[in-house]
Amino acid sequence: MYPSTFTYYRAGSVQEALKLLVENPDAKLLAGGHSLIPAMKLRLASPSALIDISRVPELAGIRDAGDRIVIGATTRYDDIQRSELVRQVLPILPEAIDVIGDLQVRNMGTIGGSLAHADPAADLPAVVLALGAELKAVGPDGERTIPADQFFVDLFTTALQPNEILTEISFPKPPARTGMSYQKFANPASGYAVVGAAAVVTLGEDGKVAAVRVGVTGAGPYAVRRQNVEQALVGQEPTAAAIEAASQLASEGMTFNSDIFASDEYRAHLTRVFVKRALTRAVERARG
């Protein structure tokens, strides 16, 4: 298919990109393009201008910042997957990235692009929720930090303002005895998550759950944290029965999507099942 015409700008710096955004209020940022270009080809999106930020040096890269790991917004999935640092400290990221799209998509797609696009069926939103990440945005009025919990607002809608640019995602390094897992039920055609569940569990020395965070994507209009599940588990011995009981809460209070492949009712069921599976695996890993 064939996109509509647009003006192409290539930004050399974040400041230049911000300026272009102000000058072209209808413009879209282009990083990997793997959410935007398919929409443009089908003419579901026809922005008058694209601002290519993929060559802005300060936006890409992975760095160790002491108690945090910071990943630039235009860092490609493939680079994250290959990072030894990420594999060691945040193994849920490569685990989730491995089931995003396909090899070619992972070569082009970027972490920030996916998060800013906020596709309801994207994988990473669940993961950043479970990891308790912080997202840094820069706008004309300067920089601000948005906790992952407040980032996903609605279908394809985030807390970012139209004139803001997502610059980096910062992850706290997990404490000892932490296990994490992303479990996904993929749509067989698109590969997107029908339901994806991310769980990060930290066990205390007594073997009980000291901290837990659960994120769910695919199920509803946007990715959500499941605090009810978390609360039911904290302080508990993470037995199969306890996980099962907590997971039963996973679908409570949520709105579910429905399509030809999976009804809302089935998605609610899968949400419970995949939260259970992610928790089970995370606990296994936390036990080492």
Binding site: P188, A189, I260
Partner: peptide, 9 residues
């Protein structure tokens, strides 16, 4: 409804 390879598996 299954009008593309996104929906037709």
């Amino acid at each position: 409804l299954s009008a593309s390879l996104m929906d037709y598996a």
